[in-house]
Write a protein that binds this DNA or RNA. Structure first.
Lengths: 363, 363
DNA sequence: GGGTTCTGCTAAATCCTTTTAGCTAATTCG
DNA sequence: CGAATTAGCTAAAAGGATTTAGCAGAACCC
């Protein structure tokens, strides 16, 4: 292939050599000027201006691949999310993006379907087209690929999960406390049969979870744990709806309240209850989890456990960048507090109001 | 720096040279085997197996930057989205990801805040760490950076927007038809004062939009276009809510129905109407737009204009890959049909039911 | 047996930027 | 004035995979 002066015309993208030619300097100078390496190597103002002008004239931007190859870094942080569906992550990522930008990193997102056993982002991940990843979703976090990545120098932070690999930091919200608060709130309102709809039952040995908090609250109140009141459902509105259908089905000893895995599923729950002609909160109380926007717009508005989502995103980025830039931290696990937001779906003001009589049918 | 046999130990990531050493062949062979270039260069089964075993033993994966540099392609397609908030895009991206994978491409997403005048993904985009991008959002689609990218060989597809650059294909849903159908539906149900809440007024000369369909339906029915019934609001539930507040405010000649920019804003609208003690659909009808999941779970469920979101994602990928692989298409613009889904928020069965008397107060 | 054709693999160039040792010319110093 | 700095820049290597011309040896042919 012919080489020479017309390189830019051939490929469509000008290279530093093209800029160098135009400015009458060497490619090294282009790099030095454009990256502000003035501290290392001196460049005269005159040359600097020439380079900048030439770069602008050609519309030059450094080739990402070449730069990454040489520098061994991409300045990209990737979020691996189980789905784009959940507005929860939208809030987390937005905050993360802001934080990352301040450190000179860009953020991208890969939706990784999280079918057990498959890890679709695998091929992408293994290419390591990023310096670090923040991983959400149980299956993603436990994927063996993560250890490989970590072993090869990619910084990894698990979001809301605990990785089996001790070299992988985690940034989470205190799910157990959230589960406790949600359940305790219902108990304080007089409920005695309280269901919990979850996305999946967590294996023993993993991080303490919503379910642990649920059980702790029950125990503290002297209520027996009834396994038939804990349901697993798909993490969607439809999933939440189906779970409630199940709870209201024939042969069930109906609960009077449910603590839902998240707000999304809680929306589905409200829907199912409506279809059954049950009034919320009068006939049935619902507590959500997450605190996302939709909870304010449902009828009734959702009482929920609010997460500091922005903080979560920011902290994840900071933990990651800390690891990237070799500022070793002894903190392996960051745990953020949650708070109860009382709206309408459980009835009003906490324990202040007279406790309503729950109708626990004993068949 | 010392070079040699222990390279893998130094960097943490094995290179093709490491695999070559272990397998007793040259790096070229590694590449040939691992990429299945058997058609070009013959490799014995024995060597092939040795290479594969060595690669597996070392956990080798090719360095993404080096490969991209050499091949001048990344096999990555990036979605530039104005926000992650909207479940609409979730559906589109999911389908796109599936389609892309079949062609050997991975999909990543960049949330690009879309404040007028700023294009936050800029630095990322200019690096061109991808072969093509699919861009959504007015501001993103009209960003001058797009032309630069297109000029330099990055394939660009605009989603739901029309780019000023003729070299940029677009894949969209027929918004005008959707606007017409939504409005026509309300007219058929007897409404005469119909508001339209939109995200932004589109500039003349751009693609025909919801508003055009709205106007066409009004015109066809002999109804005067009243500019005071067209409101602009933020594209969120809160934005939809505020818009309705405004419509119901003092001094307004109240409409009896509203065609909302999308389902998200329609959810906000339902909320605002509820706060005002108005019953939907009896006192006020709402039509949404998009057909996303939430519409089935609201009370009342949303009548809406459903988009073929999966198709949209698939088509965008196919248009993009077609452009990437130099299969020139004369189709600059793909337009997908929409359809009306009648649920509850406008009342039941179209024109079949007796038209209810709208209460148009003339003050 | 000598020439030809395959087989199977490798050497070396290439992609583009960054980095650092070091070169040249100008300036300063004694 | 000669030596020592300093300023300002460049040459060349490095980073890791891919690609292609072509080499060496084996097999084949008459």
């Amino acid at each position: 292939m012919r080489r020479g002066a017309t390189n830019a015309a051939q490929t469509g993208a000008p290279t530093s050599a093209d800029v160098a030619r135009l400015a009458g300097v060497s490619p090294a100078t282009i790099s030095l000027v454009l990256n502000g390496r003035a501290s290392k190597v001196r460049i005269s103002d005159e040359t600097r201006d020439k380079v900048i002008a030439a770069a602008a004239q050609l519309g030059y931007t450094p080739n990402h691949a070449a730069r990454s190859l040489r520098q061994r870094r991409t300045n990209i942080i990737t979020f691996v999310l189980p789905t784009l569906d959940n507005p929860y992550f939208s809030d987390v990522v937005r905050a993360a993006q802001t934080a990352a930008q301040q450190h000179g990193y860009a953020v991208s997102v890969i939706p990784a379907k999280t079918k057990p056993g498959e890890f679709h982002a695998l091929s992408f991940l293994q290419g390591a087209a990023f310096d670090g990843i923040i991983v959400a979703g149980r299956e993603n976090c436990t994927a063996p690929e993560l250890r490989q990545l970590a072993a090869r120098g990619v910084a990894v932070v698990a979001l809301q999960e605990q990785s089996p690999d001790p070299s992988i930091q985690s940034v989470s919200v205190d799910l157990e406390a959230g589960g406790y608060m949600a359940t305790r709130h219902l108990i304080d309102l007089g409920h005695r049969r309280i269901a919990h709809v979850t996305e999946r039952l967590h294996e023993p040995g993993t991080r303490r979870d919503r379910l642990d908090g649920y059980r702790r609250a029950l125990e503290e109140a002297g209520l027996a744990f009834d396994p038939s009141l804990v349901l697993t459902a798909e993490n969607t509105m439809a999933g939440g709806s189906k779970a409630i259908e199940q709870l209201l089905g024939p042969g069930m000893q109906r609960p009077t309240a449910a603590f839902m895995y998240n707000d999304q599923m809680a929306v589905g729950a409200l829907h199912a209850l409506r279809l059954h002609g049950l009034s919320v909160p009068d006939d049935f109380a619902i507590v959500g989890f997450d605190g996302v926007a939709i909870g304010q717009f449902t009828a009734p508005a959702l009482t929920t456990i609010d997460h500091p989502r922005e903080e979560l995103g920011r902290l994840a980025i900071e933990a990651l960048i800390g690891a990237l830039e070799k500022r070793p931290s002894d903190v392996r696990e960051h745990l953020l507090p949650v708070k109860l937001i009382v709206r309408e779906s459980c009835g009003g003001g906490k324990t202040l109001l007279p406790r309503r009589q729950p109708r626990t049918r004993t068949r």
